[in-house]
Design a protein around this nucleic acid. Sequence first.
DNA 1: AAACGGACCAACCGCTCACAG
DNA 2: ACTGTGAGCGGTTGGTCCGTT
Length: 306
Amino acid sequence: MGRHSCSVKQKMRKGLWSPEEDEKLYNYITRFGVGCWSSVPKLAGLQRCGKSCRLRWINYLRPDLKRGMFSQEEEDLIINLHEALGNRWAKIAAQLPGRTDNEIKNLWNSSLKKKLMKQGIDPNTHKPIIGENEKECMDSALLLGGQIQDSRENLVYDPLFLSEFQAAFDHSNFMNHFPQNLKIEGNPNNPNCGLINSMPNLTKFNHQNITDTHYCESSASKLSGFMMNEAKESSSNSSNTTSIAINNMVENPSTFSWDDVNKFESVFQFNKANPWQEESSEDYSNFPLTSLSQELTRAHLDDFQI
DNA sequence: AAACGGACCAACCGCTCACAG
DNA sequence: ACTGTGAGCGGTTGGTCCGTT
């Protein structure tokens, strides 16, 4: 922002370093050591700014630098460290002797990021990527009431709702008929791939404090039923092929096909036009059943992270 | 052979932080 | 407490290489 770079203040050389410049800097540092970088160029006889000299030394001339390709172990370590530290390249580099932050940053941006994405992992969050179809499913869950607000007023998924949402699909034998090609490719080690399985892990969510009555009366139970009833109703009130397919799917899950999935989604599209959508996303006070799960969720929010 | 585009990498830029005066 | 300066960091840019058309 207002501050000029060192190369602008005086007529300094920019761009790639020549072998002569490298030699001058190397000789100076090895002889006198690193003192004040701003005085190094003058003392070393270079037309560079101190900042540039420092960078050249750290990233290229330093004798303890490790050259060559990154090993698999190094790559794995970088990925693990990135998960823990984020884009703190200097901190990551500190754990890899002989490697510079710049080097690691370049490797991450050019290679590791893409590798993770190919494996279906979001390089920013290190969590499985939710694809468009999965997102639509999650959105559908939200539209049906599966959202609440956390203490920071961010919209989050209601674990109680999603628990039943998932169960509803499980019971309808949904996953058994889910096309393999929709699952995230290339990550056989990741059990969280696929539509329902890519939903938040609910195993940590504690249902112990919920009585059977509460659980059955929860918004989720109602909504699971609502979802299926809607499908049936939609089919009985309409003669179009979509409705027939949905009805067929609900009644006879064993004949469920990928084509049915698309048609099933149209039910959710239908629900989007439902005025309930607006109310449920804004004001939960009118929906005591949702509020119940909301309250229970708040109590366990720490255990539940998307 | 030339043009093009993507990958890679070195270097730059702007910002923040620490510290001395 | 304030200011100036240097060091360090992370994001971005620009040049080069290489494969493809």
